[in-house]
């Protein structure tokens, strides 16, 4: 299979890794910001207050209906046009992915909390626990177990979707790959397959540990 030299060239490898660094940085920062925001959102969503419900519902639907690319354009170009903000591509990406993560995770948290049967609360109260204690000791542990698989799924989706950031000028993994392929278009015409193969592998080694982690935690909590 010709063309392997393109992925053996040390400077190409270093550039791909630098691109991966940008991808992972956007992904991790967004996931880290989504966690507290999403949990807060989810807990608010379980409240009975119709105003809070309507606002959060609107937020969730807005984020869900809009393609991520449109959101990126809105935040990157839109804020510059309307308010003259000069957000960097990476900052705009983190804003969009955090908003997305918070909305989706919020809905997952709400689902997990509401899936715990009413009887669990009642049993806890009967045992003499207060509201806070019942929530922390009985409801939350069960909800977290149910929450983990879809939350990890969301995190991997967020990491993968960072590939869209290249369209607002962020030089991340895919963009670096395309630059290398294009530069070697004539010297190594079969390079595309090798570069995309390496990119697949790099995304895999970022996302796979997440899956392993969630499986481990699930197994431990199941006991």
């Amino acid at each position: 299979m010709p063309g392997a030299e393109i992925v053996l060239d040390p400077s190409n490898v270093l550039r791909l890794l630098a691109g991966l660094g940008v991808t992972v940085r956007i992904g991790l920062v967004s996931v880290a910001l989504s966690l507290p925001l999403g949990i807060a959102c989810g807990m608010l969503m379980t409240l009975r207050n119709p105003l809070i419900r309507a606002v959060l519902r609107a937020y969730l639907e807005f984020i869900r209906i809009m393609p991520q690319l449109v959101l990126l354009y809105l935040v990157f170009f839109g804020t510059a046009g309307a308010w003259g903000w000069d957000l960097s591509g990476e900052a705009a990406s983190v804003v969009v992915f955090s908003l997305w993560g918070a909305a989706e995770l919020g809905d997952l948290v709400r689902g997990a909390l509401e899936s715990i049967p009413r009887t669990q609360y009642d049993s806890a109260y009967v045992l003499g626990m207060g509201r806070r204690q019942a929530f922390a000791r009985v409801i939350l542990p069960q909800a977290v177990t149910r929450l983990l698989p879809p939350a990890v799924n969301l995190a991997t989706r967020m990491v993968k979707t960072t590939s869209l950031c290249m369209l607002i000028g962020v030089v991340e993994l895919i963009r670096v790959g395309q630059q290398i392929i294009d530069y070697n278009r004539f010297a190594v015409p079969t390079g595309a397959l090798w570069i995309y193969g390496s990119i697949f592998f790099l995304y895999f080694i970022v996302c796979w540990p997440l899956s392993i982690l969630s499986r481990r935690l699930e197994r431990r909590w199941a006991r």
Partner: peptide, 14 residues
């Protein structure tokens, strides 16, 4: 780094 499709938005948004 620009792409064919976002050259106009880049200028419009300064």
């Amino acid at each position: 780094a620009t792409d064919a499709a976002n050259r106009v938005p880049y200028l419009e948004s300064n």
